[in-house]
Structure formats: C-alpha cells, structure tokens
C-alpha cells in the first residue's frame, strides 16, 4: 500500500453504464472502470466505501453497494442532498465519474459461515447491507437461515424494490418489509410499523445468529435494545458509522469518533465496539 510515487487523491475514471431511480431522490449508478487493468484488478470487500467524484463539484462518500462476488462493475446508491450528490445526479449514462477506493474495513463474512444472519435496515441505509446480502446469497450454502427486516417511511422510499421482490420470491430468504404507519397504499403487501417494532414481532432466533444493522441513528438507537431483548450479544451485532469524510485515508481529520478514524478503523463496527466509543457519531 505504501507507494511513494502515487497520488493517493487521484481517482480512477469510470463510465456510468446504467442507472436506476430507486425513489424520487435516490439513484443507483452502475459503474465500469475505463482502464482495463483497473477493471480487472479492482477488488473490494463488502462494507468498504469509496469516494465518488462529480468533476467540478467534488467528492462524496458512499459505500460500494454491489457485491464483491459480482465482477466487472461496481454500484453505488445515493440520495441527492447537496452539491456533489446533485451534480452526480445530473450525469447521464455514458458519462464519466471518478472513483477512489476501496477504503475502510469490511464485514468479516467468513467468520459468519455456518451461522444464521439477520439483516435490519432502514430507509437509504439498505445499500451498505445489500452488498453483504448478495455476497451471502451468492454463497448461500455457507449460511443458516437468512432474515431481512427492511423498512422505510413510505412505500415510495423503499430502495431496491425489484430486489425486494426477488428476495420475497426466493424460498431461502425470509424478507420482512415494513413502512411507517401511514406510509402504505391500500395494496401494500408488507407490514406497517417502525423497524424496531417489526423486528421484535418477527423475533428471529438469536442462537448462533449474527445481526447486521444499518439505518438512521434513531433507528439504530431503538433497534439495538430489541436485539438485546431477543438475546443477541453485542459482539455478534454489526453496524456501520457514517461520520462525514473527505479523504477516506486517515489524513484530513474529519471522521474521528474519539481516537477512532472511522475511515480507517471502520466503517464497520460491532455494537460492542460502538458502545465503547464516546458519543460523537
């Protein structure tokens, strides 16, 4: 990794091969590296993130939302909230964006072999788990039961709707989808209620099970006690922190929680690790 003659801030170029509007303000981009050598050598692990540039606007941090088992491209999924994300939204299929990464640690998927998995996600936070979900589904025989509890404010806010359908139809995954009270249409075929409540109702067994939780801070706050009640131990629950980042490389001083640089030591942490940190996320 220590290469004296390399500009660590220089992104690779990638072409937008396809895009999907997941919700009115959330978009998925499928990206293919323009340099053939990079296309072949780029490898990452589920949970890692990258810095994506819209030239002229700057860089934004998103997780790599596709699975490392799917080669030849990567995907990111982002909500338009500011300068860079709005600029990324203005790009069309065929145009070029910059990608720096992969950065950060990852989910220790190999250590989950032989166990059951419970994924709990809220809103726009499905992408960081979706990479793990597909990674695990592509290695389906390595795991026991797989449960996915996913919720959003309204039906329209659910991302990856086509994949939710796919998971629902697969016999080897239990998908529990929900929307907040009032967020459903008459034809809604999922649950109605907040994620923590629905998780408690779904009551996945904690025995030999790993919990993976991503969502807005408020959802995480109420989900962890539910998992605890269900019998999950803090060191078998994983989550990600999303402190604001710039460099992604442990230099710019922006992302720290206490003495932990989220960009280098994270973004993936166990609930036990998070509980040991100062309240700065």
């Amino acid at each position: 990794m220590c290469d004296h003659t390399k500009n660590i801030y220089k992104p690779q170029l990638a072409t937008i091969e396809a895009m999907i509007d997941e919700t009115p303000d959330v978009r998925t981009l499928r990206l293919v590296f323009q340099d053939e050598a990079v296309r072949e050598s780029f490898s990452f692990r589920a949970g890692q993130f990258a810095e994506y540039s819209a030239f002229g606007a700057g860089e934004s941090t998103f997780c790599i939302a596709s699975s490392p088992t799917r080669k030849g491209y990567i995907e990111c999924c982002f909500r338009a909230t500011g300068r860079v994300t709005e600029a990324l939204r203005r790009l069309e299929v065929g145009e070029t964006i910059g990608v720096r990464g992969p950065y950060g640690n990852s989910f220790p998927i190999e250590s989950f072999f032989g166990k059951n998995l419970v994924f709990v996600a809220g809103g726009i936070a499905l992408p960081p788990l979706r990479t793990v979900i597909w990674n695990c589904l592509d290695w389906r025989d390595k795991f026991g039961d797989i449960t996915i509890v996913y919720g959003a404010r309204t039906e329209a806010d659910l991302v990856y709707k086509h994949e939710l359908k796919e998971w629902q139809e697969r016999g080897d995954v239990r998908l529990v989808k929900t929307v907040d009270p009032g967020g459903n249409s008459p034809g809604w075929d999922g649950k109605v209620g907040f994620v923590p409540t629905i998780l408690e109702e779904a009551a996945p067994a904690a025995e030999n099970t790993i919990g993976l939780v991503c969502g807005p801070p408020i959802m995480i706050k109420f989900t962890l006690p539910v998992l605890e009640k269900l019998g999950f131990k803090d060191d078998s629950i994983y989550t990600t922190l999303e402190n604001r980042m710039k460099c992604g490389l442990g230099k710019c001083g922006r992302c720290n929680v206490g003495n932990v640089y989220v960009c280098k030591d994270g973004p993936v942490f166990t609930a036990a690790q998070v509980k040991g940190m100062p309240q700065e996320f």
Partner: peptide, 29 residues
C-alpha cells in the same frame, strides 16, 4: 493538519484542491 478537498472550476475544466480546514468550524462534521 485538517484539510478539505474541493473542486474549483466548472464541470468542463478545473482543479481539485486540498486546502486547510479546522475542526473548530461548525460545518466541519
């Protein structure tokens, strides 16, 4: 040594710069 990374220019031409920042600024995090 905190710094920001910003693009200066237009969508068609410009430069990316590293510039001093400070953890005391309200928008930093």
């Amino acid at each position: 040594h905190c710094f920001d990374i910003v693009d200066e220019g237009t969508e068609t031409k410009g430069a990316r710069r590293k510039s001093w920042d400070a953890c005391g600024f309200g928008k930093f995090t």
